[in-house]
């Protein structure tokens, strides 16, 4: 599945200082189930985060203080980890934790 992932607010430093990643997520979702943000976070953790993963994740979700937007919409409106993703969706992660 083609997705556009964007890291901002300092999170780009955790993935080689690249802000925008056009990725092909080849996760096998079980029995016709849709890919969820929960699956994507695990994938990002394994495949994109190069250092200090604790700045990005806490448990199985993002660290408090990291904002997530799916198709430019706050993921708190779409079910957070249960938000389902489709082809060509965009997901943005922004840290609020650095810099004043």
């Amino acid at each position: 599945m083609q997705l556009t992932l964007e890291f901002g607010g300092g999170l780009e430093l955790l993935c080689n200082s690249v802000k925008i990643h056009n990725v092909d997520v080849d996760l096998q979702s079980q029995a016709g189930e849709k890919l969820t943000m929960k699956d994507l976070l695990a994938w990002v953790h394994t495949n994109l985060i190069k250092e200090r993963p604790e700045m990005f994740m806490k448990g199985d979700t993002v660290r408090p203080g990291v904002l997530v937007l799916v198709n430019d919409c706050d993921w708190e409106l779409s079910g957070q980890l249960d938000t389902t993703l489709g082809e060509k969706d965009s997901v943005v992660f922004i840290s609020t934790l650095h810099g004043g």
């Binding site: 849709k34 799916v70 198709n71 779409s78 938000t83 389902t84 489709g86 082809e87």
Partner: peptide, 15 residues
Amino acid sequence: MQEADVVKPKKNIGA
């Protein structure tokens, strides 16, 4: 995944 719909704000409960 199935064919993407034409309209962007699709799926996602509440989106």
